[in-house]
Amino acid sequence: MTDKVEFIAGKLDRESTFYVAGHRGLVGSAIWRKLEREGFVNLVGRSSAELDLKNREAVFAFFAEAKPRYVVLAAAKVGGILANNSYPVDFLSENLRIQTNVMDAALEHGVERLLFLGSSCIYPKFADQPIREDSLLTGHLEPTNDAYAIAKIAGIMQVQAVRRQYGLPWISAMPTNLYGPDDNFSATGSHVLPALIRRYDEAARSGNTSVTNWGTGSPLREFLHVDDMADACLHLLENYDGPSQVNVGTGSDVSIKELAAIVAGAVGYEGRIEWDQSKPDGTPRKLLDVSKLSEAGWKASISLEEGIRSTVAWYRANIDSIRS
């Protein structure tokens, strides 16, 4: 463990070793691309086959060898409503082990700057909208993904504990719903936007005259392109130092019905859009207050329509190799 590190806002050293945990996932791969574009020359990543982050001894051995100065913890077990609701033990246990192992090893080996990535599901189901960072732990969670949320809340607490006990300038960022290249387009394990892209693309290709979605379509959701998220992460690493997690989003939302219509247009689907109201909607609205992020000098630049069009193009270009 090193002595207390004083945080001075400004560019990170582009030649220092930078470990991106989860560098092949949706967020991690975007952060990797961003760091490469920004001139970082000593990026380190390990696939799950090369390093099981649930294996504590292996994680500590990796940190002893790699000696990263900076870390982004983007590795996590993630999934949509169905996966979270069906496998809560997996989402709780695996994420707790990943987070604890990486952060304990980072602390042991003196990582100077660490960014922990969470999720907007950490906030109460009926939190005032838009959701402020101080809404954390003020109410009941959405029951369909409470296990995952508890794991992410524990990660935030660990970052805050490290700051209090050791004085390291570690931070946490809580993204809204993310989408883009390298997303999970699985029929059973994906989030709503990639699930819609796959569903409507398949319908357009096969000539189906109707597509049925879960719920009523009334819930409101906020969506952020993952390239914007990566840009925000580097900005926070270079400009923000505080104990509170920082919300990362666009500050605006759309209904799931509106989202479905945008996706249908992007893939060229012209059939009927129907809704199975026997299926759960989840949280009625989830819009993040991004005032803290704005005060730190950052805002999103990729529109939802532009982002969906580019994601559809990526999906079609990589349909034979994507996670499905």
Rank of each mutant, 00 (worst) to 15 (best):
Glu50Phe: 05
Val254Met: 02
Asp253Met: 08
Tyr87Phe: 15
Asn95Glu: 05
Ile302Gln: 07
Glu306His: 10
Pro130His: 11
Thr138Phe: 04
Ser210Leu: 05
Leu43Trp: 11
Ala230Val: 12
Ser278Arg: 14
Gly25Ile: 01
Lys77Arg: 14
Ala260Ser: 15
Ser324Gly: 05
Ala149Tyr: 00
Gly110Thr: 06
Ile302Gly: 05
Lys292His: 11
Tyr19Asn: 00
Gln129His: 08
Ile197Asn: 03
Leu220Ile: 01
Asp289Gly: 00
Lys11Leu: 09
Asp13Glu: 14
Asn177Ser: 14
Trp170Cys: 09
Pro169Tyr: 00
Val27Glu: 05
Asp134His: 09
Ala266Val: 08
Val246Leu: 06
Gly139Gln: 10
Leu114Asp: 03
Glu38Phe: 06
Gly217Leu: 06
Gly217Ala: 12
Ile31Met: 12
Arg113Thr: 11
Pro219Asn: 14
Ile81Phe: 05
Leu53Ala: 07
Glu108Lys: 13
Ser294Pro: 00
Arg37Gln: 15
Pro284Leu: 11
Pro143Glu: 12
Ser291Glu: 14
Gly217Arg: 08
Pro194Lys: 08
Met1Ile: 09
Met157Gly: 07
Ser218Gln: 15
Ala264Gln: 07
Lys125Cys: 10
Ser291Asp: 14
Tyr87Asn: 13
Arg113Trp: 09
Ala9Cys: 09
Ile31Cys: 02
Ala187Ile: 08
Leu259Gln: 07
Ser218Tyr: 06
Ser186Ile: 06
Leu26His: 10
Asp227Asn: 13
Ser324Leu: 14
Glu142Met: 10
Lys11Gly: 11
Gln160Asp: 02
Leu35His: 06
Ile262Gly: 04
Asp227His: 10
Val254Glu: 09
Lys279Glu: 13
Phe223Lys: 06
Pro219Lys: 11
Leu107Met: 12
Ser86Arg: 15
Gly45Trp: 13
His140Lys: 13
Phe185Tyr: 15
Gln99Leu: 13
Asn213Trp: 01
Leu43Arg: 04
Leu115Ser: 00
Leu224Phe: 06
Cys121Arg: 05
Gly307Arg: 05
Asp231Cys: 03
Ala147Asp: 09
Asp52Leu: 07
Ala204Phe: 09
Leu220His: 13
Ala106Glu: 03
Pro130Cys: 04
Ala232Cys: 13
His23Glu: 14
Tyr240Lys: 12
Leu236Tyr: 06
Ser255Glu: 11
Asp90Gly: 04
Ser47His: 04
Lys286Pro: 00
Asn85Gly: 04
Asp183Val: 09
Pro181Val: 03
Gly22Gln: 10
Tyr179Gly: 03
Val248Ser: 03
Ile308Phe: 10
Ile319Trp: 00
Leu92Gln: 07
Tyr240Trp: 15
Thr2Arg: 13
Val263Gly: 11
Gln245Thr: 02
Leu193Ile: 14
Ala127Asp: 05
Ala106Gln: 03
Val111Gly: 00
Arg198Asp: 08
Glu238Asn: 08
Lys4Gly: 01
Ser16Ile: 08
Ala76Trp: 01
Asn101Ser: 09
Arg309Asp: 02
Ile197Val: 14
Lys34Ala: 05
Ser294Asn: 13
